[in-house]
Design a protein around this nucleic acid. Structure first.
Lengths: 148, 148
DNA sequence: GTTCTATTTTGATTATGTCAAATGTGTTCG
DNA sequence: CGAACACATTTGACATAATCAAAATAGAAC
């Protein structure tokens, strides 16, 4: 149940000419098992607490490499730190204005680019990422308090 | 041709209970005249070179205040530093993967939220911001060189 | 003009990300 | 198997972005 995905990871890495290293597998597995969107520092701290002594710089290297191969993607959720997640099916994001929580929003089309560009664009389009903003149900009830 | 906009700025500030200060007017005018998307540091440096000695911190304060009032908006163009622009008509953004240039993309609807949320969302939606990514014409011609 | 309070300023501090050189480790090939 | 090469990781310094608290300043109302 795990080895199949790991095998796939190994293959994807080799296909791309990247070596299969413990660090890369760890970072990928961490993101895949935990799910959600995580910053480099999240990953760094989590793996450190798990006992894996790993420099922050290495996490940057790894996520950049894995993103280049298409195994991870950088979630668009507004400015700030980059948030990474396992690149599975193409989807969008909903960001709560109050608590900042990020929810995945399934894409109706399911693959990039999913939106028909309006009129003319200044170049080719290979991706259309949507960020929905609003107040999530948890926050609309109790309004204040959660994060402000 | 300028005073009308300035008057409007003053009114919007007063309406929101904010004071009309030289700094706020300067920052707003700078962004409106120059157009485009600018980081806090862009604004800081530009105003400094123009002879206005203004601390970076103050620029942060001002853009945050003006954004809160709805006079500025923070452009979604991926992670990294926050980019501000005058909040005029609702639109989206096209980001070139090679040179990083950001182009405005007119919205077909023109007002928020412009997209019909797919199915159910975890809360209310007041905004749907789209980021188109691809390679702009300038870069697709000469491929490499521009930024890589 | 005086007063009150929002705003600006100052300086320190945290978070985030990048660079270059030294070290270590997969992988390949003899 | 084991040596050698190239790719990865590590180290530590550095660069950039953003935040905080408290003191100084300047709108706006009276």
């Amino acid at each position: 149940m795990d080895s199949s995905k790991s095998k796939e990871l190994e293959e994807r890495l080799r296909e791309a000419g990247l070596r299969v290293t413990a660090t890369r597998v760890e970072v990928y597995e961490f993101l895949r098992e935990l799910g959600g969107h995580h910053s480099v520092d999240d990953i760094f701290k989590a793996l450190t607490e798990r006992g894996h002594k790993i420099p922050r710089m290495t996490v940057y290297n790894v996520v950049t490499d894995l993103e280049g191969v298409g195994l991870l993607m950088c979630a668009d959720a507004g400015p700030g730190r980059a948030l990474y997640e396992v690149a599975d099916v193409w989807h969008h994001h909903y960001v709560c204005r109050v608590c900042g929580t990020i929810f995945d929003v399934p894409c109706l089309v399911g693959e990039k680019p999913c939106l028909t560009p309006p009129g003319t664009l200044p170049g080719s389009v290979d991706e259309a990422q949507v960020i929905f903003r609003g107040v999530c149900r948890d926050c609309s009830g109790s309004e204040k308090g959660v994060n402000e």
